[in-house]
Simulated assay, not measured.
Amino acid sequence: MSLPRGIDDIPTIVDWSQTSLYVSLFSIAASPLLWNLIGRNEYKNRTLTKLIGARTACFILGVSIFLAGLLRDVLYRIALHDQPRYPLPYEIQAILAWIIFGAGNFLVVSAYFQLGFWGTFCGDYFSILQEKRVTGFPFSILDNPMYFGAEMCFVGAALWYERPAGLLVALYVHLTYAVALRFEGPFTAMVYANHKSPGIQKHE
């Protein structure tokens, strides 16, 4: 099967009739939307903190975000399998997929070890703040390595399963995260700017 050429071939590489595609797109957008809404409400109203304490509430939210990410990945793979496949020469496909997917996961994991659980999973919304700004790798080369790493994983999976539609989904992921960062970045800066004494705040 020859590779598609030109914009006129886009309908042949994406099966827009597959419900799994839209479910996947919804799951991708839902996670950052929900954790931003919950986090902002928590910072303003302390709804969960008043009920169960800041660290317990943040832990539950963090686990929920992690599980939602796993579900998002499963739904993405289901969507890929429902899309048209365009075989590539095995060596090219395998090498590119492993390099991109591996590098993406490396960025995500290394960023997690720099931030820790609270820094990764919205601790700032619960006033559980870092002692100082994290500048070690991968933050020394990227401002948002977790988001960028996740985007790379979507690209790597699209190449591994040989689904061009996955590359369009990866672009959608990039745009979704770009929008999320326009809200998260200034909000996080405001949280730290309004915090009077440096150091991690302990809320039990």
Rank of each mutant, 00 (worst) to 15 (best):
M1Y: 07
S2L: 08
R5L: 11
R5Q: 09
R5E: 11
G6P: 00
D8R: 14
I10W: 15
T12A: 10
W16D: 08
W16L: 14
W16Y: 12
S17W: 05
S17N: 11
S20G: 11
S20M: 11
L21M: 04
L25V: 05
S27A: 13
S27M: 05
S27W: 06
I28N: 02
A29G: 04
S31W: 10
S31Y: 09
P32Y: 00
P32K: 00
P32A: 01
L34G: 11
L34A: 07
L34I: 09
L37R: 12
I38A: 15
G39M: 11
G39D: 04
R40K: 10
Y43D: 14
N45G: 11
T47V: 06
L48I: 03
L51V: 09
L51S: 08
L51P: 03
I52C: 05
A54T: 05
R55W: 04
R55V: 04
T56L: 03
F59D: 06
L61K: 02
V63T: 11
L67F: 03
L67H: 11
L70P: 15
L71S: 06
L71F: 06
D73S: 08
V74F: 04
Y76P: 05
R77D: 15
I78L: 04
A79S: 03
A79Y: 00
H81R: 12
P84M: 04
P87V: 03
P87G: 02
P89K: 10
A94S: 12
I95D: 12
A97Q: 09
A97Y: 07
F101V: 07
F101Q: 10
G102T: 01
G104T: 12
N105Q: 08
N105W: 00
F106Y: 13
F106E: 04
V108I: 08
S110N: 07
Q114I: 07
Q114F: 02
Q114N: 14
G116Y: 06
T120E: 00
D124R: 14
Y125H: 08
I128G: 02
I128D: 01
Q130A: 06
F139D: 03
F139C: 07
S140M: 04
S140I: 01
I141P: 00
D143C: 15
P145Q: 12
P145H: 07
M146R: 11
Y147G: 05
F148P: 08
G149V: 08
G156D: 02
A157H: 06
Y161F: 04
A165V: 01
L167E: 05
V169D: 10
Y172S: 13
H174K: 13
H174C: 11
A178W: 13
F183P: 07
A189E: 14
V191G: 12
V191W: 12
Y192M: 06
A193S: 13
A193K: 13
S197V: 09
I200K: 13
Q201G: 12
H203A: 10
